[in-house]
Design a protein around this nucleic acid. Sequence first.
DNA 1: GTACGATCTCTGCGTGGCGCAGAGGAGAGG
DNA 2: CCTCTCCTCTGCGCCACGCAGAGATCGTAC
Lengths: 162, 162
Amino acid sequence: MVGEATVDEAREGLLEELSTVSRRYMASYALFNQAVADHLRLHPTDLQCLNLLTLESGPVTTGRVAELTGLTTGSATRLVDRLERAGYVVRERDASDRRRVLVTMVPERIAEFGQVWRRLGKGWSALFDDLDDSQLGLIIDHMRRTTEFSAAQVARLRAGEV
Amino acid sequence: MVGEATVDEAREGLLEELSTVSRRYMASYALFNQAVADHLRLHPTDLQCLNLLTLESGPVTTGRVAELTGLTTGSATRLVDRLERAGYVVRERDASDRRRVLVTMVPERIAEFGQVWRRLGKGWSALFDDLDDSQLGLIIDHMRRTTEFSAAQVARLRAGEV
DNA sequence: GTACGATCTCTGCGTGGCGCAGAGGAGAGG
DNA sequence: CCTCTCCTCTGCGCCACGCAGAGATCGTAC
């Protein structure tokens, strides 16, 4: 019993530590994103959006941009305005449904900050040098599950359940 | 040689996957933070700040708030204004150096959204049930190192080094 | 074909967070 | 006492955002 208790306590301690570290981790990303955005003379939201667009397969609608970023459709329109003015994306009406507007990334322009990303990511992969593949897989899996969990919690919050 | 090549490719694939998953992970946090902020009728920045304050040991100065959030000192002043008006923190001049203003959290008020956090975190710890302590430690360690790396990159970016 | 409701995007407006630059007040050294 | 520096606050302008309604297009029923 004593043994189990101490094991649980150790476990609690680890989870507590993880909670703390997670928050610092997130905070550091916010600062990082801000710094990169400043460097590229972009609004943080705009950079975040470009980031998300690179994760999508093919063009997306303005409405989808709103979903991805959590903005209203009106604000998404303005966001696409800025990105288009800056030359990162182009608008084109969907031929099959002319109400919709497809946002397509401009490869050359995206490649530009791909360069910045790569330079910044130089030391990043070194962080994993002493990890084997299974450990890498563990981290990937954890992030994936956390992302799903987070999305579910967001849905609950928006539904006003919590 | 062929063997090594495929191993490297597998490794590349894992890192590529991690890169993708990381970005989704970060994006989901941004949405989560936004959703929680909406729920608490707070600005995302304000919530983020409170989050960071709970990670600090004891009161912090307004200047420190600026550092933590990445805002200018002027905006940090306004941020503390909002938090104070909402009752989450109190200001008091530092007795030993009367130029400085110490920002102290109001425990009762913080406890309130501690409740929300706990309810949302209910299923969170379940994400780790099938992980043993060493695996947990691995994730903690990874986050810690990434946080440090990120801070270094931010410093480089701000210094204009890229 | 027409009418009607639903869906998608855009636009005018007001609010408010943010950076910037300078003011005000407090400490440190000559 | 003077100056130099440091910390915080304030006035100002900019612009991202939400909101609500307009405009355009699609689907469906008649």
